[in-house]
Design a protein around this nucleic acid. Structure first.
Lengths: 247, 247
DNA sequence: TATTCACAGTGTAATTAATACACTTTTTTG
DNA sequence: CAAAAAAGTGTATTAATTACACTGTGAATA
């Protein structure tokens, strides 16, 4: 017996990953080929998403989408936006696609959007019958995106930046142990800027929940960097209500 | 001919107002009286909300709710959260209420939530057949709230605080001209803290889009304060991409 | 095995921002 | 004209931010 999905409620996941070089996001290829002519009718990309089951929590639906793609549970996940334009699925190509997958193209779908953070070097992504890929955020402007997914991606990046200004969730994008250059690079690609190495490290040094490990990199063809890790316990304790507002 | 509402999609509005003393929020009284015994079956409060029309934008639905309550257009409005627990309407009292207003109590409703900001001293609020009131945020813990509206209110305050840390939307809660004490009081009640008057004014002085007017208060029984106003044009120009992150 | 490459790692001085703190001024009211 | 009430103002100390350039270490390679 199939679980029943709600025709009007979906979730979309913007899955950010960091490979020590760029900020990437998971996209799913959408391809429709005319069975007669063999012509490509559609060839573009969508976010990972799905309709929610009639009895399913929104968060649970997002986690399900995430798990199906990555095999991972317990990933950082945060709702950031809900897209509900009555015409958001009404471009001709999107209508064609919906028909091809046996959805009613006239049905209004409100999509609750989540972003999640993973360390992309340690994950294999897959989806049966579909090509899934890590797309660099910088390349998105050159990619054809389905529905209103370009808009959702823009909002997601904004939400990530806002979050990262206040909370050390950058660690969700890094492995357990990381070097300070990797951490710096992460902030640089997320905020699309550059920081001075000495000043960055001075700042990090004052943060007590970033702890220096005894271990160093091995096998790199230069001076090996010291590893650091994020101490969740210290963070939770020192998460004082520091008010840092600006008018 | 009635416009048709979508049975599964609603909006709720957390309407913040500032009266120079406290941060308040608009609540709508929910009362159900047994027609036979005269007994009060329900007596509590809800947010202002409504189902969206089948062809209506989410934002437009929120603006409609807002307009119906305040008569105001062009109010600051921002989506901050979507509540979609399948059981969010299933407490016995909520079920009873839904039946009494001829809604199908079994229908799942996903509510897209907005907060908006108004200067509550210059607005009269009303709703036909319902009592509408400004409730101080500090009193909410003592008030019975319908559905999951207590949770939504908590999220709204968090969203407001986050926004106010980065953007000068405080002006949406103030009249055109305001005194620095009023501005300070606003930040104090939103963040539930106190600031030093001299340091606060020092900070404000450095902000070029808060401009001193020639005008002063009249009719107050103490030294009249100078009025200031928010210059939107200067703000837009000086809204540089100041990056103020913390790790 | 000496050289080159690549990135790690480090300190100081100058500027700017944040904090702590108390009295005088102006207006109304009784 | 005295009292009440809130407006308005300055300085010294500490902390944070910025700008800036060389040395150290290990692997690769010539």
């Amino acid at each position: 017996m199939e679980k029943q999905v709600h025709p009007n409620i979906s979730v979309d996941c913007v899955i950010f990953g960091f490979d020590f070089k760029e900020l990437n996001v998971i996209l799913v290829q959408r391809e429709l080929i005319d069975p007669i002519s063999g012509e490509k009718l559609i060839s573009d990309y969508t976010l990972a998403g799905n309709h929610v089951y009639v009895d399913e929590q929104l968060d649970a639906a997002a986690r399900r989408v995430l798990f199906n793609l990555t095999g991972l549970h317990d990933i950082f996940l945060e709702q950031f936006f809900t897209s509900g334009d009555p015409d958001r699925l009404s471009k001709p190509m999107d209508q064609l696609w919906l028909k091809s997958i046996n959805k009613n193209p006239a049905e209004r779908v409100v999509s609750v959007c989540y972003y999640s953070l993973i360390n992309s070097t340690s994950v294999t992504i897959a989806k049966k019958d579909r090509i899934v890929l890590w797309a660099p955020m910088k390349e998105l402007k050159n990619m054809a995106l389905a529905f209103d997914h370009a808009q959702i991606l823009e909002n997601a990046l904004q939400a990530l930046r806002n979050k990262l200004k206040h909370e050390p969730i950058s660690f969700e994008l890094l492995p357990e142990k990381f070097t300070l250059s990797q951490l710096q690079r992460l902030y640089e690609v997320v905020f699309n800027t550059e920081f001075d190495k000495r000043n960055f490290r001075k700042k990090v040094n004052k943060i007590n929940y970033i702890v220096k490990l005894e271990e160093k990199q091995v096998g790199v063809s230069h001076k090996p960097a010291t590893y650091f890790s994020f101490d969740r316990k210290i963070y939770e304790e020192s998460k004082s209500e520091i008010l840092n507002f600006s008018i």
